[in-house]
């Protein structure tokens, strides 16, 4: 089966030509995106019920990027992501209940309530952390890539970050460093057009904050439609393959849009309605569903994915709701590798 989906070449308006992608992979991409969507939607709902405290940064609308990479990556690859990292953590194989449990501060939480929404980490799944200080994790991702290079394991590190990160110093330091050491790392800028409340274009010297800077590091500019999971999956595969073969880092800018505000406190009113409606019409999940139907995939198989996922998120929510708060004594442990918090004798 060879098919082509042709629209504009402007990634913010639609996709370029798509190569053949196996149906099984396409179903996996759809399932992963749909799971990410219901997970984020549930996180929002639980927030509105005051069951999630603190803050929460949702990736509603941006699911195609985490899903495309998650499906393309090798199981032992590493990912580093930001405080908007529920979906990036989930796609590595972490359970819904441990993510919701962490958001709710429960014992079943991924970090037993010691990290919270902004720090989801699962080392056993290669999800090496969600970093809440802009830019901090780019050099750390380079370090993990250096380690894989030194140990000769063939592992690739994928580092997700937002458009706002491209204006902080750590971005520059990490990009240059990764290129000169030819590290197996893929930097993925999710350009959702807004840093927090301010449009990235209003505060940035170039139009495409990551892609337009790639050549400064000797890298090919790569600008893709981050709302088209096929495009993301394909770009991920190319960059992962290059890194794994010793070809060094890539910098990918994926254009996308978050359906909500920056965080819980932000209704996102600064965004023009026309812009918002335009992007909602390009929601990565229903548009991909339409594509799958047009490619001859049975509606029933998609419905089965949806109903399974809907049941799974309900079950995970129940587990997390019923999980007790973490035992208070864990507040006093694990500062040091011996498990203690002791600083004196």
């Amino acid at each position: 089966m060879e098919e082509t989906v042709t629209t504009s070449t402007d990634p913010s308006e639609g996709s370029g030509d798509i190569r053949y992608i196996d149906t099984e992979i396409r179903l996996k991409l759809y399932r992963t995106m749909y799971e990410c969507r219901v997970l984020e939607q549930r996180a929002y709902d639980l927030f509105m019920q005051n069951l999630v405290k603190g803050t929460s940064h949702l990736a509603l609308g941006q699911e195609a990027i985490a899903a495309g990479f998650g499906v393309a990556m090798r199981q032992d690859d590493y990912t580093f992501c930001t405080y908007r990292g529920h979906t990036h953590t989930y796609v590595r194989g972490v359970s819904m209940e441990s993510i919701l449990g962490e958001l709710m501060g429960r014992e079943c939480g991924l970090l037993r309530g010691k990290g919270g929404s902004m720090h989801l980490t699962s080392v056993e799944h290669g999800a090496m952390g969600s970093y809440a200080i802009i830019g901090a994790h780019l050099p750390v991702a380079a370090g993990a890539a250096w380690s894989a290079q030194y140990r000769g394991t063939g592992q690739v590190t994928v580092c997700f970050f937002g458009d706002g990160t491209t204006n902080i110093g750590a971005f520059h330091e990490a990009l240059n460093f990764a290129v000169i050491w030819k590290l197996p790392v893929v930097f993925v800028c999710e350009n959702n057009l807004y840093m927090e409340y301010t449009a990235i274009k209003d505060v940035t010297a170039v139009e495409n904050p990551a892609a337009d800077r790639a050549e400064a590091y000797g890298l090919e500019p790569i600008l893709i439609d981050g709302n088209d999971v096929d495009v993301v999956y394909e770009a991920a595969g190319v960059a992962l393959d290059k890194a794994r073969k010793g070809g060094g880092p890539s910098l990918i800018e994926a254009k996308t849009y978050r359906h909500g505000g920056h965080s819980r406190a932000d209704p996102g009113k600064y965004r023009p309605d026309e812009e918002l409606q335009g992007w909602l019409a390009r929601d990565p999940i229903p548009t991909y569903r339409e594509r799958l139907i047009s490619l001859g995939i049975e509606d029933e198989s998609l419905e089965a994915i949806e109903s399974e996922t809907d049941a799974a998120i309900d079950a995970a929510t129940e587990v997390a709701r019923n999980s007790p708060p973490p035992p208070v004594d864990i507040a006093h442990i694990d500062v040091w590798a011996d498990g203690s918090a002791s600083w004196r004798n």
Partner: peptide, 22 residues
């Protein structure tokens, strides 16, 4: 290994390497 004058890259690289076996 010599590095550029990039203290964040130096410390970040050390962190990422240390959490993955070095």
């Amino acid at each position: 290994r010599d590095t550029p004058i990039s203290e964040q890259a130096i410390i970040g690289a050390a962190m990422g390497a240390s959490m993955t076996g070095l």
